[in-house]
Design a protein around this nucleic acid. Structure first.
Lengths: 129, 129
DNA sequence: TTACAAGTGCAGTAAATTCTGCACATACAC
DNA sequence: GTGTATGTGCAGAATTTACTGCACTTGTAA
C-alpha cells in the first residue's frame, strides 16, 4: 500500500494530525506554499488510491485519512529495514543504540518508558526529560 | 541526493553488495524478472544523477556505486524519522524496543554488542546468537 | 439581491519513472 | 570466417507525479 510520495505524505501527515480538513485548511497548513488546485490534485490521487475518503458538508468536502498512520509507519519501516538493514529490525535497533550514544543506564530508562507507554503509538513521540 | 525509487534502489542494493557488475549480471540477480534494456534505463538514470559510475572492460561496462550505502541509509532514515517519528531518533528507538519485546537483559547485551562493533556499519547487519 | 470568498470539476502540461524494441558492435568458440 | 551470446546505443511509449488555469457553484454576510 504505502509508501507515499513527498506530496502525498505531506497531506497524509496533516490529516493524521488534524482528523478532518477541507482543501483550504490543508493548503494553509501545508509545509510549503502550494496552490489550492495543486493540493487538490494530491487529494484526488490519494482518493483514487483509497488512502483518504471525503464527506460533503455544506459546499465543501472534508477529507480524512483512511490509511492509519501506524499502518503506514509499519509498512514504510519494513521497506526501509529490508533495503538497508537486511530485513532485521534488530540491526536497525543496534545502529540506533550506537548512534544515539546512550549510556546503559539511559537505555534501561528508555526501556522502562517503552514498557509503560506500550499502548502509545510511536507516531506520537514524546520528549525525554 | 537519495532517496531512490524502487527500481533504482534494487540496482543500488546489488551494487552495494557485489561491488562491480555489468548489466547482464545485474539483470540475473534482479529481485524481479526484468528486461535487459529496462534495467539499463535505471543505470542510465543513476549515472546521470551521479549515484553510479562505470568503467569499460572488454566490450562491457562495469557499474559500481558512487553513493555509499551508509550515506543513503542516513538520509533515508532521517526522512523516515521526520515523517513518522516527529524527527526524533529516540522516538523510533523507543518504538523498536517495544515492538521487539526485548527483556532488559537482552537490551543490555545488545548495547554491549553495539559498543563493540562501533566501527561496523549498521548496513552490514549481523545475526544475534 | 448582490458581492465575494471559498469551494468545485475538469482539462491540460511538464517532468520523471518505468519499460520496450531494435539495429548494431564486439568477444569468443568453432 | 561464421555463429552466437552478450554487449551497446539509441528512440520511443505508457504511466505517474506534480503541477496550472479557468469557468462555474455555493454559502454567507452586507
Amino acid at each position: 500500500m504505502p509508501p507515499f510520495t513527498a506530496g502525498e505524505l505531506n497531506v497524509m501527515r496533516l490529516l493524521w494530525e488534524h482528523g478532518e480538513l477541507k482543501p483550504g485548511e490543508l493548503q494553509t497548513r501545508f509545509p510549503e506554499q502550494i496552490k489550492n488546485s495543486a493540493l487538490r490534485s494530491y487529494l484526488t490521487i490519494l482518493l483514487e488510491k483509497g488512502h483518504v475518503s471525503r464527506r460533503k458538508a455544506g459546499k465543501a468536502y472534508f477529507y480524512k485519512a483512511v490509511t492509519r498512520r501506524e499502518s503506514a509507519f509499519r509498512t514504510t519501516l519494513r521497506e526501509f529495514v529490508n533495503a538497508y538493514c537486511g530485513g532485521s529490525n534488530q540491526a536497525l535497533l543496534l545502529n540506533l543504540i550506537s548512534s544515539e550514544k546512550l549510556s546503559e543506564r539511559e537505555l534501561v530508562a528508555l526501556k522502562r518508558l517503552a514498557d509503560e507507554s506500550e499502548a502509545t503509538p510511536s507516531t506520537q513521540p514524546r520528549k525525554r526529560k
